[in-house]
């Protein structure tokens, strides 16, 4: 390891460790749910087993199944019923709501995101990823989870970024073609993608998710076996940025990876269709913002 590489690794660990102190520890059931989404042999019984263990998840499941978004004719009264009716959709919803406890900061300094911006961007990235996964062999549930977690590293960089904002601003103004993650790396010693991967590494998630988070701004550099999911998260993040609802000070200052776009055979019509679909996918989650009981 060169001296440079060692310094980089130390910076990465420090940021991740500092951010982890403030994070609510994700319940172990979350890791089990994600593992289940990766399991092609799962069925309603297996899902119900995991959900029933945790009283919070059980209550959430019933609330989700009975929410206006699904509008079943008869009220759903048991967890099994909820699982059978919604299947993987239910697990995605449960994970999105759990992640809100982590990402849903009212304000994020540095990136200057307001009104739970990080969570709102992340649910869009997740929804786009689940839809894009059908263009690959990646499972939609895993793509969804990776999309949800892609920008978690911004939690760690928010404060350091605010402290050096003047330098960041000057660099953005000097170079119209620069990329924000490259700037983070140069000024702060690591970028939000690698820090995010470092943060979730100890959550015992499938390695594909960690790799996709780490490489979501340069998927072509991902190891070959995780390249497909990295491509998916990369394009999903660009689509969410393009919608822009929750963009921060980093705006659209990112570079797209041509090889990822070619690999997924993305066309302008696909991007536009995705933007529409994503907005309708997340509409009911957005309502949580104004509903304190949810």
């Amino acid at each position: 390891m060169t001296r440079e590489a060692i310094r980089h690794t130390i910076a990465l660990r420090q940021y991740a460790a500092a951010a982890a102190v403030e994070l609510p520890i994700p319940p172990a059931v979350m890791a089990r749910m994600v593992a289940l989404m990766d399991d092609p042999k799962r069925d309603a019984y297996k899902i119900a087993e995991v959900v029933e263990v945790d009283p919070g998840l059980g209550a959430d499941s019933l609330r989700i199944a009975n929410s206006a978004a699904f509008a079943f004719r008869n009220p759903v009264t048991s967890i099994r019923q909820a699982v059978v009716a919604l299947g993987e959709r239910l697990m995605r919803e449960l994970i999105a709501r759990r992640m809100r406890a982590i990402l849903g900061r009212p304000e994020l300094p540095g990136y200057e995101m307001l009104n739970e911006g990080l969570w709102r961007h992340s649910i869009r990235c997740a929804a786009a990823a689940a839809r894009l996964s059908s263009r690959t062999a990646v499972s939609p549930g895993i793509a969804y989870t990776a999309g949800l977690m892609a920008d978690i590293g911004k939690l760690a960089l928010a404060q350091p970024l605010r402290e050096r904002w003047d330098e960041v601003r000057a660099r953005l103004e000097a170079d119209a073609d620069c990329a924000f993650d490259v700037l983070e790396d140069e000024l702060l010693g690591a970028d939000h993608a690698e820090i995010g991967a470092e943060m979730i590494r100890r959550w015992t998630l499938p390695p594909a998710i960690v790799a996709a988070v780490a490489h979501h701004h340069h998927p072509s550099a991902a190891p070959a076996k995780h390249r497909a999911i990295a491509n998916v998260i990369h394009v999903a993040d660009l689509v969410a940025m393009q919608i822009g609802v929750a963009a921060g000070s980093d705006g659209l200052w990112y570079r797209s990876d041509e090889r990822a776009i070619a690999a997924l055979e993305i066309t302008p019509a696909i991007v536009e269709g995705l933007m529409c679909d994503v907005e309708s996918d997340v509409a009911h989650l957005e309502e949580l913002l104004s509903d304190p009981s949810a």
Binding site: G244, L252, R255, I261, P268
Partner: peptide
Amino acid sequence: VGGASLSGMGDLFDIG
């Protein structure tokens, strides 16, 4: 107001 774009992608991301 608005219409930002990702650079370098030509028409693909020039919805802005």
